[in-house]
Design a protein around this nucleic acid. Structure first.
Lengths: 214, 214
DNA sequence: GCCGGATTCTATAGATCAATAGATAGATCG
DNA sequence: CGATCTATCTATTGATCTATAGAATCCGGC
């Protein structure tokens, strides 16, 4: 509970210290390790020692890169959630049918699982442990994202493209639930690739599994 | 800043020296408290002190009822998973259409959320922290349960009742994902009741959200 | 009215963990 | 060479948590 000291005066002179690119690369390696460990064992299940072990450095050395475990979680979660809202908004703004928008939303949701699965997983499962301020921040982003999806579905219902007997909110929750669970089993059920899952999940959502209707 | 004084007691049930029925009732109160705390804060996020606080007793007193925190988790998880396999098997054995079986499976999956949500939630989210022996045990139960669902769907596909273009395993994962996520938001999204959710989720699964096909 | 088991308590040991302080090796550059 | 900066190390503190030991309390039945 001490105020942290900072090297306040940084010279704006000619030589930018050392190698800024190397520095940033190392920072992101540290974050990758944190994300991996948080995703695997959960925030409280993971110790800073575990993170250090992944990197092959000492536990205390981590604190050169972040000032607390909570901050590390916040950084990981932010990287896990960022992009979702923007990607969904972009899809929603296209001039296409509601069904095609749903397809795009599912694809956009699953795409990050290919290259930042640990960050997304940590965001999904561990954000509850964020300190209140940042929890509210990611909560806001997350809710905005859900609203984009809900709006697409509501508009599909309003236009008659989707069935009116279904509650848009529940459909949104169903879509999110399906997609969220992918992050759990993806990587264990080896043979599935993201595009294939997106395709089939979209079909289930739009047409169900039943063969015929009416 | 050491000693915790505990003045006022909002005690759940004080009746020492009790006959077997009372004893078992107290045991189940203890487990309820553990389930509640595990579900809310996660296994490692929850301390035995938190559980004791819910009950209005001292942390050490818990150890009269279970010998370790891990054992408590195991008991909670077992109670959270038990019944799923049996209920699903019963549904699968009925002489009804595959579509009606799916309806029954969804209903059977969501039903426990009404009366033992904390146990189910803990099973779903915290079972990864079980010691290896019991983790394997619940894992086995859980996989058997999934197989029942997968078989129902596969038979529906084989009989032509469901669409052949969809992978039964992926459909099973979609169903489970949808249902699992219900345990997360149920209780926050106040206005939804279990039967209503089961009904709408079943409809989405069987017929999708799109209005017409072919 | 008191005995004995059931239940809860106090107190604390022992382990783990996040975080701090300060030292040191290595690189870069004048 | 020597100054400086970066990145890591060693060592340790203080907090927190699980679990144990043993004392105190409660209560039904004799």
């Amino acid at each position: 509970m001490k105020t942290r000291r900072k090297p306040e005066l940084q010279v704006v002179g000619t030589s930018p210290r050392a190698s800024a690119p190397t520095q940033r690369r190392r920072q992101s390696e540290i974050l990758d390790a944190a994300a991996k460990v948080f995703a695997e064992r959960g925030y409280y299940g993971a110790s800073t020692q575990d993170i250090a072990d992944v990197l092959g450095i000492r536990q205390a050395s981590l604190y050169y890169y972040f000032s607390s475990k909570e901050i590390a979680l916040e950084l990981v979660c932010m990287k896990g959630v960022e992009g979702f809202f923007e990607a969904a908004s972009e899809v929603a703004s296209r001039k296409i049918s509601a069904a095609d928008k749903v397809r795009g939303l599912v694809e956009a949701h699953l795409a990050p699982l290919s290259d930042r699965a640990d960050f997304v997983k940590t965001f999904l499962n561990e954000r509850q442990y964020l300190p209140s301020a940042s929890r509210k921040k990611v909560g806001k982003l997350s809710r905005a994202y859900e609203k984009v999806i809900e709006k697409v579905i509501a508009e599909g219902v309003a236009s008659g493209e989707f069935r009116k007997t279904l509650d848009p909110r529940l459909m949104t929750l169903a879509l999110l639930g399906m997609c969220k669970s992918v992050s759990v089993w993806m990587g264990k059920e080896e043979h599935y690739q993201v595009p294939e899952v997106a395709e089939q999940y979209t079909r289930i959502l739009l047409a169900g599994i039943g063969k015929k209707r009416r």
